[in-house]
Amino acid sequence: MKKTALLIIAVLGILLLRAAEDLPFWGDPQSPASVHLSDYYLEESYEETSVPNIVTSVLADYRGYDTMFETVVIFCAGITVLIVLRRTHRRRAKVISPRPERPGADIILQTAARLLVPMMQLFALYVVAHGHHSPGGGFQGGVILGSSLILLALSYDIQMALHRFKEKLVLLFSAGGVLLYAAIGLACLFLGRNFLAYGAWAALLGISEPEAHSHGMLGVEIGVAITVLCIMFSLYIDLASGGDLDEGL
């Protein structure tokens, strides 16, 4: 098995390294990937969307449909983990093994976590809200928000984190984030434009069309952040406790 694997790897490696010679030089401004569409985004996106962070404008506007379904993928992954791991109370009682005794709470760890968590959450909100003008956006901010809750669950225990943010709420919000995204897209449809064509909001909000694009993006980024936050937290609590949510690491 190992020899076959090595052989496959060797052949593939030689093929790939040989093929790499035909790829453009590293950092070549004229490489095929960096002309055509990329130049259009760089030159026109500010005029069209009034968002200086081109990564955000491509993510949430030009490729908004793609990003919406990326969010759905994350949502589905969270639900799948839940379906795979969750056991009914009866089946749990049958196979339950005595969990090791928890060591006493660590006061240094808990104090540090208590100081860190609000800072992280504030910073995450900044990352979400300022994602148009600086590196950041829904995915990044959502992950930071999620990790602040995971830090809480790690330094205290899962019960404490769940007391702050009930599991039912976690799941409701994770669906709500995706729905918020889809609702903003659908509203554009009802306002007489294409799905996720945020320009439709311009007349309603009384702003110019590029600004409407900017606001529409902020809306969907918030939806993405909510879903990512909830799914990251849900992934952690389910994986750490084997789906039982009693206690984990």
Partner: peptide, 23 residues
């Protein structure tokens, strides 16, 4: 910007698929 956009989502989706694999 395009590769950055694609990889930005790929990283988060990668974490989710890793979660499913661990489950």
């Amino acid at each position: 910007p395009l590769p950055h956009v694609l990889m930005l989502t790929a990283i988060v989706v990668g974490v989710s698929t890793l979660g499913v694999a661990l489950a």
